[in-house]
Design a protein around this nucleic acid. Structure first.
Lengths: 202, 202, 202, 202
DNA sequence: AATGAATGAGGCTTCATTCAT
DNA sequence: GATGAATGAAGCCTCATTCAT
């Protein structure tokens, strides 16, 4: 099944468009972004966008999806690369924060979608939700493993997994909101520490 | 200083418009909401909106502000009404979650603004930011008190205060995202427990 | 037929409204002037305007009419007060220029209407046209008298009368357009001289 | 430098839009003219107007400018084509009146702008003012030449140049105001005669 | 008579989408 | 396939006019 030249071009265009869409949606948000903007950044004509995607909505969904895929890949490999439960959790948090630190555009997009309730573009998020759930599940497995090994006290693992996701997202938000927020590693350590020990005095 | 009838009417209109704006902005988001929508829900003509607010932006800002004020009032009195440090924190989390549970529209609006990075309507949020900071500070004082009394271990109180705010917002988001999410009191207990003890086994 | 108090009030209001209308229309032109503006300057409420005039159009027409009446009165008495033909013409030109110099608002209004072709408010001008014609006729009589007395060469008196009106209006326009235009008396002398002798060398 | 087909289309559209704008602005004036009207007359959709001009103001300015350019071209070539001072002046007046007679729309537009004081759209007229001044200057040179050659008596040439411009504009206004005004050539002769000889008996 | 809050038609402008080249 | 000119629906806002008080 040889990839034709057409395939290559298609892939290239698709990729350029998504990259552009990312940037534009991240900068301006869904409504303020215009097809014109995206086309310009992508280096194609406005009409071309419609050869690859059916609508603005579709481009947004695709951009968001790619964003989620990349993040998921990152966190998955972080989990795989770490040894014990404690390290896995720390690695997870670190991976997420580092990823966002490096790809602020991605984060802005991700944040627009996950930090809040959906209104209207709801439908677009189907696949994205699955990726989100995949992350939750992966983290949940780690937690369950920790509970079984008595490293973690008995807790509602799914709820905690989500709380960890939320906390890291919130932290990333804050880091972008307030530039000069301090050392990233400190924040990672802080988030992990809080997660792990809570605030109560022993 | 007798309030004239005019004042009453003005107040009534203002209030009706804000109520309507709340609903519409919450349902559709800033961009998708139309002045027409708001007017219809408020039961007035489009032009009337402009007798009370100078622009769509202004209405949004006012609605958001009212939202923040009400929430802040709620959490403040929760803090005041609780006795010890532990109770205060629990009360704070509970107040926030209950408030949002009761006023879903408020939350949707609040969430649109606080759960994410600002793009453009940034300027509108000046006062709102102050209210947010007031909450952070109030909670921070409680935490400092706890640290001094050795009820709470030595931590970066501001960062933790923010983390608590974020966690409760995230939880509220999830509750609205997924209806039938379970008992509210359970979630409150969970959030507090996690905050207080962390996940680590002692 | 004793004038009731009502009549006095009516007259006062009418007058105030027209004065205000003058100023506002002169400053902003018909379309840019708002009823709100006029009401504010007149010191009455917007609704009150409609008790005295049926529409914005009507106010405009009335203001214009008053303007024309005052100007006509001025030029008429100038003609009456001067002795010979030559003096009458000079006095006419002088009266017009001086009047506009003193009442720039009037001129702006007058100019908006007479310096140009009518488009839409055409109907309003009926009475005003009559006043304009009255001026033409008055001046024409003087010219005819001059022709009969051989002081003026045989010419189409009506056309010349209009030309004189136009020239003085144009001069006034230029004086307002370009502040610091020079001495008024010089311009009067110039206009008369040009009118009287033409530019040809004898 | 081959003109592409695109250039041709662009030029055509631009021209059609200006032609339409001319007509509409001439008929209704700036404020009463709507973009809808212009689009309809131009045979394009409303949005298309904005592909060629940034705003209603811009279209107006462009239409006015074209109007002034065409008139200036006409009067310039009239001056060039005539021999002596006397003929040049007559040719100038004739050119202006004939031009307006043939292009009534142009005149209506021109008149709206030049016969009166500017209020607000003032800024638009920069280039147009230059063209006006160019006319004044051209005519002034002729007058100066006449003065030097003793064909014209010593006069303030600039003021007279302006007076001639004004008189011809006024005459054109009158011709359009009152249809059936009589033979154009008669009016030209009259205007020149009056200008040249004045009204005084020799 | 006077008020001014309320109305809603209508204008300018933007932009997602289409389609002829 | 690629283009970008053209479209026209839709939104924010203004303001002449009305009418209940």
């Amino acid at each position: 099944m040889p990839r034709t030249k057409k395939d290559v071009v298609t892939e290239f265009r698709t990729s350029e468009i998504l990259r552009a869409a990312h940037r534009v949606f991240a900068e301006r948000g869904f409504e303020q972004a215009t097809m014109e903007d995206i086309a310009k950044v992508a280096g194609v004509a406005k009409g071309t966008l419609y050869l690859y995607y059916a609508s603005k909505q579709d481009i947004y969904a695709a951009a968001l999806h790619r964003c989620a895929v990349e993040l998921t890949a990152r966190t998955s490999s972080a989990l795989d690369g770490a040894a014990g439960v404690e390290d896995k959790i720390r690695a997870f948090i670190a991976a997420k924060l580092r990823f966002f630190e490096e790809h602020r555009d991605f984060f802005r997009l991700y944040d627009q979608e996950f930090g809040r309730l959906p209104h209207r573009h709801g439908a677009k998020g189907r696949h994205v939700d699955e990726l989100y759930l995949a992350q939750v599940t992966a983290l949940e497995h780690v937690l369950q493993q920790g509970v079984r090994g008595r490293v973690i006290r008995p807790i509602r693992t799914q709820a905690v997994a989500r709380a960890i996701l939320d906390m890291s997202r919130s932290l990333a938000t804050r880091r972008l909101r307030e530039p000069g927020h301090g050392d990233l590693e400190d924040d990672i350590a802080f988030a992990f520490d809080l997660t792990w020990k809570g605030i109560g005095h022993r």
